[in-house]
Amino acid sequence: MKPFTLDHAANAAAALSAMGQGATAIAGGTNLVDLMKLQVATPERLVSIRRTGLDSIVPDGTGLRIGALVTNADCAADMRVRQDWPLLAQAILAGASPQLRNRATTGGNLCQRTRCGYFYDTTQACNKRAPGSGCAARDGFNRIHAVLGTSDACIATYPGDMAVALLALDAVVLTEGPFGPRQIPLAMFHREPGDDPTRDNVLQPGELITAVRLPAPTGGTQVYRKVRDRASYAFALVSVAADVTMEEGRIARCALAFGSLGTVPWRDSAVEAALVVEKPSPALFDQAAEILLRQARGFGANDFKIPLAARALAATLAQATKG
């Protein structure tokens, strides 16, 4: 690791002050420390936010407010989350390992970087790591890469599971920063790469996630389906988060989000609109997949993700609509 200084912030104000002077926040560090070892990330100054007290889960009206420092393990073990937002618990538990979930935090998980191999290899071209150097993934080993939301500059996926569930649940990211507090809907939080893949999300320099807010429980049937190369402890090839309410044999309401398919956690209102008020059937699910994937584009080794996403969607909807 490159040398750096480390400060310990006793509260959010102290953390924001250090971040205003250029410090990078560290919480669990499960992704950042790895990136620092590989010198993909070379911060000169870190500020630990572990002791800032942002580590509780509290009711928020009819919803729930999950502090930025709540570990993934604690969030998935919380009985309120398990009973009223089971999709979130399922998605978190589908990710990483128990050891990582004990250290990884809610805020940090949202900010985790892509697992594109070229991003991690400093000898390779990567516009996300070294702007203007090119994208080695386009014509390289791109089996895990995105088929939606890509640009000429970058085809890397956002790799996480938690954010996919949060997107389907209409969660909101709460931040504090140099310009005051902000409430950023999850759907607006991650950025497609466009011509600036260096920025994965809309956080401004010096801005800190303080919590994630879940709106009132929907009472729907919630399913997180993750397809991957091994049964556990692997990133998704494709994942589907579904929250579906049935009424009299028809889909009354549905929210669908997709992981590792796009450059960002992916949600498409046209897919949901095609399903609502319809009776579930294999033909309907195929139609929904066609809408989802109408703009999808593979880069060779990841072409399989397009039919895989269609099948994963159909399987998830079959499970979520069976009542």
Binding site: G29, S97, P98, R103
Partner: peptide
């Protein structure tokens, strides 16, 4: 760490005060 399992390779020692 405080009874919870973690990967010690990904944790900075200085964060364990």
């Amino acid at each position: 760490v405080d009874g919870k399992r973690i990967n010690s390779c990904l944790s900075l020692a200085a964060l364990h005060d």
